[in-house]
Design a protein around this nucleic acid. Structure first.
Lengths: 275, 275
DNA sequence: CGCTTCGTTGAAACACGTCAATAAGCGTGG
DNA sequence: CCACGCTTATTGACGTGTTTCAACGAAGCG
């Protein structure tokens, strides 16, 4: 797999290099250009880096006290990586954990002969990385452009020991991932190709635009290529393509530029997802 | 599904009825017939009920101090249920958690039209039940005869709040289950029927007789019917049957009384499991 | 402008599902 | 003990959904 090797190279060179407390251009503008973890008077001791961060509310950082947040932000670094970049190698020793700030990360597993399966998709503000790692692990790869806030492994593990609340958040997310994995097992084991594709579109629609109730119109960019979708659904790219065109000709969705999907009526998709 | 309804009735009548601190016949013999949670001088404050229990070492109870174990055993009850008994209903409010002492529990999910998928198998000394339950959940059903040690929900949740170590054990098990679920997603999505059946036999062989290295001979009773195996593998019973007979005629396994499986050489199975 | 990647579409092959018949295991009761 | 019914498992013939193989078009990029 020559493609993967070059991807790996990209990752080694651009991702995990320590760049110290850093702030993306966007964040700099929002916080007035300060590059340090100064305290913001309006948010009572919360680092500027974290003030606008989603992970502080819905993510794991919500479990931390302001002092802990300051300590963590001192060693954290923001990063932006391109689609295809490998974030966590299969067998590598993990030396960083991250929060996903935006974008989609795919977790993949590969059989020795090259067959691949996506075993999970992660969205902001999910926590990325596997604490107390045991045997098996998956490969994490950016599916879209992804921005991350990442921390050294040692820092997180020390905080985990000190803060049961942090561990509780990790447990909560792990339980959520377990639920999602088991839901997807039903899709993989028991649904038809048409139902699989409809289920996938629903999954994306719900994660891109949460809080949409059935019956509404949604449109979004597919975060995955056809090959990725196939690997997620346990199908071939040809079958995925055929099912998408069938949904299109049936008027359930419309597709532009291969990626931009519009769903006029979510409940029509649901009806085809084999709930 | 009339079969399931009668199963449900059995469960309601026999399983979750409070019977107070109880001890199975086997356990009574082992501990000298004492029915209370007296302290055993040889195990420094550990309830007799728990002294020989696997869950105290490898299971969640290993996280508890002797006093907590005494408190927990005061409200715990041992139970023995028949195959097919429903342990945790799909949408029911869970009012008990349990340790599996022996036997196999299957976690299933069902689509509205009846298609079913087993999303997890649990063995002793796994913890059964879903703390901090969020959205989706599965149905738990005894696959074999199962013996349980179960506790009221309130007790566990109080201890969870008091003991970060207990929560840590739960997290560890949840991470293990997540790993297993993701491993199985690869099997469901990317393996052939032959590879699926071989993978299943390996899974059982490893759980029944852990510590077996490749190359050894193993024999065991299948804990699942052909229908269950099919639901676990995302196949039909006919396909499962055909693949089993193919393994048999190829000399990889031998089967007696439909359930008793002998594997002469585990590595031959592994070679067919599509690692 | 060619080159590569990505996606679509068609025809043929095949793995698995469906349908149906039969056998085997197992408890119940005469 | 055998007869009976019931569930569980096996086996065969056939149908089909998905894959495979192949050709082609569209988009992105040097």
């Amino acid at each position: 797999m020559p493609a993967l090797i070059s991807v790996k190279t990209v990752a080694d060179e651009t991702i995990w290099r320590e760049i110290g407390p850093a702030i993306s251009a966007m964040e700099v503008a929002a916080s007035g250009g300060e590059m340090t973890d100064r305290l913001d008077i309006h948010t009572s001791g919360i680092p500027a880096l974290c003030a606008a961060c989603e992970a502080r509310h819905r993510g794991v950082c919500g479990a931390l006290e302001p002092e802990q947040l300051v300590a963590l932000s001192r060693t954290s670094s923001k990063q932006r990586v391109q689609p295809g970049a490998e974030l966590v190698g299969d067998e590598e020793t993990v030396d960083h954990y991250s929060n996903i700030l935006s974008g989609v990360v795919k977790l993949t597993k590969t059989l020795s002969d090259g067959r691949q399966q996506i075993v999970g998709l992660q969205f902001a503000p999910d926590f990325l990385g596997r604490p107390f790692r045991t045997e098996s692990a998956a490969n994490a790869e950016a599916a879209t452009e992804v921005s991350l806030c990442s921390f050294p492994r040692a820092t997180i593990e020390r905080m985990l020991r000190e803060s049961p609340q942090l561990e509780h958040r990790i447990l909560t997310q792990t339980l959520k991932e377990l639920d999602e994995a088991r839901d997807w097992m039903v899709t993989l084991g028991r649904k038809t190709a048409a139902e699989k594709v409809a289920s996938f579109l629903l999954l994306i629609a719900r994660n891109i635009d949460p809080g949409r109730s059935a019956g509404h119109a949604v449109s979004f960019d597919l975060p995955l290529t056809r090959a990725d979708i196939a690997d997620f659904l346990g199908l071939t790219i040809e079958t995925v393509s055929r099912q998408l065109t069938r949904l299109r000709t049936d008027g359930v969705i419309s597709i532009e530029h291969n990626r931009q999907v519009s769903v006029a009526n979510l409940s029509r998709l649901e009806a085809r997802s084999g709930i």
